[in-house]
């Protein structure tokens, strides 16, 4: 390692401090709302709560978890993630494999590739897509949240590029041994692609968990809303709240207020992502670099 001059040492110290402050600042909004969610309503109203709970209480969480609508939409989200995950992964793999072949092995390859790429550059837009989903009778069905995005083209490209970087010799050897495409895909490609599949899995799961707009336009009945759509009516647009989170109900509770209740729900909505993020972010980073910095 090269020796550092005094100036460089001073710079290094400042650099650590600046980065630490900036990263901390990024966390402050979350920490503040988290602290409020664990504080009593009076402490939150008085403005005492900054980054640490005041009058620690779990009352807001207990109240949120006792609400029928919250649990219902939580379940809709779980179903959506499960179904969406299966559909997205099957589609991604079954499209990425043929497209990873050279034109000499798969003559129609480029026609198919363009068929999918065009959808990244042009789409029908909100209203024609909505009309199509409606015409198919999917409104208020869980499939409306799964099928319109069944083919995640970006993920297909990610996996296709990964397949293409696998050594050609493996595939050729398998072919000479008489292996079919099915064997090649299931016995060779997929086991070798686990890091890439993990990355894509996470993108898919996070994407489905975070989806709120499709729930808002395709689901007329509040009982069919996924969690993020339900949370939107609570957090962003209380006047449109079909459930009318009753202020009277809250007024009867000593420790919960509108504000602490909202804060608790923010964190319950983000909880699954918070839970997996620390373990899985290394895959994300790898997958991200893999997908974007190929020249």
């Amino acid at each position: 390692m090269l020796k550092r001059t005094t100036g460089e040492k001073i710079f290094a110290v400042f650099n650590y401090i600046i980065l630490a402050i900036a990263a901390f600042a990024c966390l402050v909004p979350m920490l503040n709302v988290l602290a409020i969610s664990f504080s009593s309503s009076s402490a939150a109203a008085a403005g005492y709560v900054r980054l640490w709970p005041v009058d620690f209480t779990l009352a807001s969480y207990k109240y949120a978890l006792s609400k029928q609508e919250f649990l219902q939409s939580f379940l809709v989200s779980m179903r959506r993630v499960a179904l969406g995950y299966i559909v997205n992964m099957v589609m991604t793999i079954s499209i990425a494999y043929p497209l990873s072949k050279e034109k000499s092995t798969f003559r129609a390859r480029n026609y198919y590739a363009w068929f999918f790429i065009i959808t990244m550059m042009f789409n029908g837009g909100l209203i024609p897509t909505f009309m199509t989903v409606r015409k198919l009778g999917l409104l208020d069905k869980i499939w409306a949240l799964v099928l319109p995005g069944a083919v995640p083209v970006f993920n297909v490209i990610l996996l296709m590029n990964f397949f293409r970087e696998l050594p050609k010799e493996i595939e050729e050897a398998a072919y000479i041994d008489g292996a079919s495409h099915w064997t090649t895909l299931f016995r060779i490609y997929l086991p070798l692609s686990l890091p890439s599949l993990a990355t894509i899995s996470l993108f898919v799961i996070v994407g489905h968990w975070n989806g709120w707009f499709d729930g808002m336009i395709y689901m007329n009945r509040p009982k069919n809303w996924p969690l993020q759509t339900y949370l939107r009516t609570i957090l962003i647009n209380p006047d449109l709240n079909h459930y009318q989170t009753s202020s009277e109900e809250l007024a009867g509770m000593r420790e919960v207020s509108e504000r602490t209740f909202k804060s608790a729900q923010v964190f319950l909505g983000a909880a699954p992502i918070l839970a997996v993020y620390p373990f899985l972010q290394k895959y994300f980073m790898k997958g991200l670099v893999m997908g974007s910095v190929k020249g």
């Binding site: 503040n32 709302v33 939107r232 957090l235 962003i236 729900q265």
Partner: peptide, 17 residues
């Protein structure tokens, strides 16, 4: 990290802070 939260969640946080 904030990249993985939806704008609904972040909206809820921002409206408060």
């Amino acid at each position: 990290f904030p990249h993985f939260l939806s704008w609904v969640i972040l909206g809820g946080i921002l409206i408060d802070v």
